[in-house]
């Protein structure tokens, strides 16, 4: 079973036999399941956080996704890689949430951070006490531009863009995850990129 870690360990000490771990977890081995989670959970949380820009929602997605994996691991038949299967679950949960936000039109410029609510437009990278005020202003405006651009994407465009640009996944794999073709994912990325370029036009 799980135990809250004192520190965050991303890698594994021993080489990972993923298929073996999956089969062991399918047979009820909790330690194997834990190792699988630890292998991927940082990526899962990063994707959810970046897609939703809300730590609270990202925590919910993390839990929902791994509980789904836990409940449905026996239905995993090695037809695709485990990480494609897992990321498919994660992106679907995130897409649902993004779509619900669009329906409710709740997208605001504010985002939750560990330090509380911060306006995306004014969100700025921490640069220390001696940072150049002009540079700070520039960073603030750039962050606002990126946030506004992302907020202007459709949930699907945002997902494809996030997975391709920030996660570095291939379009073929992204297509698999969101249930579309590589070509459709490519078109989606193109539209997203154009919109993002437009929102950052003054910086380029």
């Amino acid at each position: 079973m799980y135990h809250a870690a004192e520190t965050v360990n991303v890698g594994l000490a021993a080489p990972l036999d993923e298929s073996g771990l999956i089969r062991a977890a399918q047979n009820g081995d909790q330690d194997a399941f834990e190792r699988l989670v630890r292998e991927y959970d940082q990526s899962v949380l990063r994707i959810a956080t970046n897609l939703l820009r809300s730590p609270d929602e990202a925590r919910d997605v993390y839990q929902d996704a791994f509980l789904k994996v836990y409940r449905n691991l026996n239905s995993f038949r090695f037809d695709c890689s485990f990480h494609t299967w897992l990321y498919r679950i994660v992106t679907n949960i995130c897409l649902d949430r993004l779509r619900r936000r669009k329906v409710r039109k709740e997208e605001s410029t504010s985002v939750e951070t560990p330090d509380g609510m911060v306006d995306r437009v004014t969100q700025v990278r921490e640069e220390g006490a001696h940072a150049n005020p002009e540079r700070q202003m520039w960073n603030r405006e750039l962050s606002g531009g990126i946030a506004r651009g992302l907020a202007g994407l459709t949930p699907r465009e945002r997902t494809v863009f996030e997975l391709r640009h920030y996660e570095g996944l291939r379009l073929r794999e992204i297509g698999d995850m969101i249930g579309t073709t590589e070509e459709a994912a490519k078109n989606c990325l193109f539209r997203a990129t154009q919109k993002m370029r437009l929102s950052l036009e003054t910086f380029v």
Partner: peptide, 23 residues
């Protein structure tokens, strides 16, 4: 390159918290 200036939101305490809740 400008896109990579985006502020990362993930910190390690979040991950520890998530693991504990999942547990």
């Amino acid at each position: 390159e400008l896109l990579d200036e985006r502020e990362p939101m993930l910190d390690s305490s979040m991950l520890v918290q998530c693991r504990s809740q999942l547990n």
